[in-house]
Write a protein that binds this DNA or RNA. Structure first.
Lengths: 209, 209
DNA sequence: CTATTAACCTAACAGTCGTTAGTTAGGCGT
DNA sequence: ACGCCTAACTAACGACTGTTAGGTTAATAG
């Protein structure tokens, strides 16, 4: 009984990169080289197959890049949601915000080629592909707005902050890290602490002493 | 006498876009559409000439984009330097920093297609073009580091801030604005005030009352 | 053993790209 | 009037692009 239906979910027999393998490689190349300079032939070569073969798994290049973009948001969204959901119900607002920042930065810098590819190439892809990615984006943005609204309501944040503007500023700042981050100069976690410190308390020397 | 040597600096007779005209149009197209989807034929069409004619003014596409990138940094550098130089010598540190932030954001969002094109396409151009732009960038970065170091020394900023990291974070945040800024929702100046408020004082509600 | 199917390959298509060579038109100084 | 210079034009090149049609291979199911 143990091995009766063993080969039901086929593990692609011998080798064979498969749809997911192609997608992984595409995400990596997009992250490293941007959208314009990654051709289907480059993706195919990196995957060890020929360019035409990609059309067995995908209907077009747009379909590939759309899949990469969507997965990129879903990964960082799940990372951020899990991070704040795992906290105890009585956790103070500042700690929750710090956790969200850390989760976003981790997904972007440590974990996912999909998320970093999304941030890198979103501004380079055709309009239609951007549009297809918008619903997924909006859901993630809503998650942040919900968190920030809560923090404003419970008095953690100043009462005059504009939620939308703060969210754009915050995510924009985190994503911009991708342009210069060097893991040899410090971890993503250490960086997220610096970010949180600046955003929460500012950089001005206080005269409380 | 008034019109004696009038035609010394020739105004290109009748029509003729000229090198500067081509560069202006290239910068605008790069800002609007990114690097990959702007071909020489598109630039030529927008300039009212034919693709081959561009090679009278430039040796290659790389030369065009390199010129755009360099001008982009020079504009924002001059804008920022002038803004802080024009201030009285006894201006307090906070005000100086606010002026620098406003100047950078103005160049990026209001004034220059070159600066916005630079921010938009820098990550998309060939490595060699990026490298050619680096010296100009480093000069601008040094200007910021110099300003921030001064503010740290005179006690305006906290003593534990990392200058380089703060500069990367600050400029990254400002540049990220390009992705979502909508002049109908608020001016660049108003936005720069919000940015300065957040960076200087943070978003946390203080219990000083 | 045979039929099926998933996964890939080969070869070519029409289009676009940056780039080059040779040519043309018009204003300028002499 | 002459030749020069500036700023364009035309036409084509080879390389590369996304995409398609049809053929091949190997593992699996009956």
């Amino acid at each position: 009984m143990a091995q009766s239906t063993a080969s039901k979910v086929n593990e692609t027999s011998r080798s064979s990169v498969g749809r997911d393998g192609v997608l992984d490689i595409a995400a990596r190349l997009f992250r490293e080289q941007g959208y314009g300079s990654v051709s289907l032939r480059k993706i195919a070569e990196a995957a060890g197959i020929k360019a035409g073969s990609i059309y067995y798994h995908f209907g077009s290049k747009d379909e590939i890049v759309a899949a990469v973009l969507d997965a990129g948001i879903r990964v960082v969204h799940a990372s951020m949601r899990d991070a704040i959901t795992d906290l105890r119900a009585d956790t103070d607002g500042e700690t929750v915000l710090r956790a969200a920042i850390r989760a976003h930065l981790r997904a972007l810098l440590d974990v996912s080629d999909y998320t970093s590819a999304n941030v890198r190439i979103f501004g380079q892809v055709p309009q239609s592909v951007r549009d297809a990615n918008l619903p997924t984006r909006r859901a993630y943005e809503a998650e942040w707005d919900s968190l920030l609204s809560q923090l404003k309501k419970d008095g953690t944040l100043k009462q005059d902050v504009d939620i939308r503007r703060l969210r754009l500023m915050l995510i924009g700042t985190l994503n911009a890290t991708l342009d210069w981050f060097d893991p040899d100069r410090g971890s993503a976690d250490a960086l997220s602490r610096t970010y949180a410190d600046v955003f929460l308390n500012g950089i001005l020397q206080r005269q409380d002493t």
